[in-house]
């Protein structure tokens, strides 16, 4: 079956989820994994879909036109075979908090250090908080550590960023208890 990724974003209001999912339901699309959230004043939806007959973008016709007309932006990606399968990422889960006075480069520098060391970021959120005079940037991310890597290794790599970016950084392992 062909799988698709659908991204929808627009000014937050009530009814977006029902408007979107009604269309998908009427088309006969299945929603697999999805994540939806408010970012700033926008509501953003990311969904992995499949449909028993649809093969490409044209299959959807103008089904999403009502969404566009109500001010939402819609982007559909046709997945390559296997693109819907979540890889098994084995390893310890590590949570990293980075926060401090807002300045350019916080996300980039942290992600760069992790990427250079083959750490897989699996979840990342940022939020600008604080006051207009004192904006504070908060970055929270979850990463899966490759085998033989520890929370101390991560801490060692990000340590120079504390001075460079003048931010606080804490690294801790998240233990998932399967009961």
């Amino acid at each position: 079956m062909q799988h698709f990724a659908l991204t929808i974003i627009g000014r937050d209001r009530t009814g977006i989820v029902s408007q979107v999912t009604e269309i998908l339901y009427e088309l006969g699309c299945n929603i697999a994994d999805s994540s939806c959230s408010i970012l700033g004043g926008q509501f953003a939806m990311i969904l992995i879909l499949d449909h028993p007959e649809y093969v490409d973008r044209d299959s959807f016709g103008d089904a999403f036109l009502p969404l566009e007309e109500s001010g939402l932006s819609v982007f559909l990606r046709v997945l390559k075979p296997g693109g819907e399968i979540r890889p098994e990422i084995e390893g310890e889960i590590c949570m990293i908090s980075v926060y401090g006075s807002d300045k350019p480069g916080i996300v980039y520098r942290v992600a760069q250090v992790l990427g250079e060391n083959q750490v897989n970021i699996t979840d990342l959120n940022t939020k600008l908080v604080g006051s207009a005079d004192n904006p504070v940037y908060v970055l929270m991310l979850e990463a899966v550590l490759p085998e033989n890597m520890t929370e101390q290794d991560i801490d060692t790599w990000v340590a120079p960023l504390r001075d460079e970016l003048q931010v606080d950084i804490t690294v801790r392992t998240i233990h998932t208890a399967e009961l």
Partner: peptide
């Protein structure tokens, strides 16, 4: 607060 999983509900925590 802990992140829990369950053998009867695989692949979700």
């Amino acid at each position: 607060t802990m992140r829990e999983g369950c053998m009867s509900v695989p692949d979700y925590t």
